[in-house]
Amino acid sequence: MTETADIAPLPTVDGGFKTILADPPWRFANRTGKVAPEHKRLDRYSTMSLDEICDLPVADVSAKNAHLYLWVPNAMLPDGIRVMEAWGFRYVSNIIWAKRRKDGGPDGRGVGFYFRNVTEPILFGVRGSQRTLAPARSTVNMIETRKREHSRKPDEQYDLIEACSPGPFLEMFARYPREGWSAWGNESGVEVEPKGQQHRGYAGGSFDQVPLLDSYERMSPRVADRIANLMREEYEQGRSIRDLAEETEYSIQRVRTLLRRSGAKIRARGRGAADDDAELEQAV
């Protein structure tokens, strides 16, 4: 149990944060209405009661016109709306995280009393009058990626938020610091080791979190830059283009284009090395 008196003050900026992302440590109740016991063996994180979450002075650090992206479990949607209102925001829409297997199908390892959950919503709220930025007009309200460590959310959320909402940005209950964001939470420091297990393969350039794309789909420049840099790190450590294509399930053509985007020096290959760069750019 987390006592609010022990929680560090929220950071502040002049004029307030225009965009806030929050993933509160919700406390579940079991079917009898009693608080569900926390699993001591897993020791993942401390939870907070609904009142404790509502009492956080988020309105005090928010801009007059601002956006809120609030993660909430499917079973606690009404609580999410209550928290949003307590923080000074009104609910207007949502984004759905669809958890996928490597083959693109729904990841059926989720839990739930009534259905096996393969989705998780982000409630989107507005304070004052704050439109989304122009890229939002062509951004769908769904993120489709593979699951990572327990309760860790997909990195693609940052690409979406940064493209659709203005800064300055604040992440509450952050697990890791992110460049360009203010991070608040007991696991957000660079020196803090997250309590949740970090699955093998998720550290140091893993591609388990890359977006699933059809051959004709293009990714945003921000996402393309992030994945291109990951690929360059792996490629310069000796991975082949074919290896990267198999792991990401992207075409060899797309992988080569991303590597070139990152400035990687492409190693000699069997067939002619001269590709039409203009044609390749169409694949990203």
Rank of each mutant, 00 (worst) to 15 (best):
F17Q: 07
L258A: 07
E247H: 00
I241K: 14
G204H: 11
G263I: 12
A174R: 08
Y91D: 03
S240C: 07
T119N: 12
A5I: 02
C164A: 11
V192G: 01
A245Q: 04
G88K: 07
D23E: 08
Q237R: 15
R31N: 10
R137P: 01
L244T: 08
G110Q: 06
G15S: 03
G270H: 11
P211K: 13
D107H: 10
E233N: 12
V118L: 00
V61H: 05
A278M: 08
I7R: 09
G167L: 06
E120P: 05
Q157Y: 06
A8Q: 14
V255Y: 07
G204V: 12
G205T: 05
P24R: 07
P78L: 05
T145R: 03
R27V: 01
F124C: 09
L21N: 02
P154K: 11
D14C: 01
T119E: 02
V210W: 06
R239W: 07
D214K: 14
V61R: 06
D214C: 09
D155N: 13
S251W: 09
R232P: 02
A8G: 01
F89I: 07
T47C: 10
S251D: 09
Y216T: 15
I7T: 14
W87T: 03
A63D: 11
A5S: 15
R269A: 12
A86T: 02
M48H: 02
G238D: 13
D60V: 02
L133I: 05
D107W: 03
T145D: 01
Y176P: 00
S129F: 00
R148I: 06
L77F: 14
L244W: 05
A66N: 08
G110V: 09
I143L: 15
G238H: 11
L50C: 01
S251P: 00
F207R: 04
Y250G: 04
A224W: 05
K34F: 01
N117Q: 15
S215L: 14
G105C: 02
E191W: 01
M76W: 00
Y69E: 02
V92K: 14
Q209M: 05
Q209A: 14
E191M: 08
A86S: 15
A163F: 00
A224S: 14
S251R: 06
N117C: 12
K34I: 02
D79R: 05
G128I: 12
D55F: 00
S251N: 05
V13L: 01
A224Y: 03
N74E: 08
V92I: 15
R137T: 13
S165M: 08
T257R: 14
A22M: 10
G112R: 08
S93L: 08
G270Y: 10
E156P: 00
E162Y: 09
N117H: 15
L259D: 06
G185M: 09
F169S: 03
R178W: 00
D103K: 06
D208E: 09
L68M: 13
I81M: 14
H199V: 13
L230T: 15
D155Y: 04
W71I: 07
V61S: 02
F28I: 12
E120S: 10
L160Y: 11
K64E: 15
G238V: 14
G105V: 03
G204S: 13
G125W: 06
G110Y: 04
Y202F: 08
A134N: 09
A245Y: 04
D43A: 15
K102N: 10
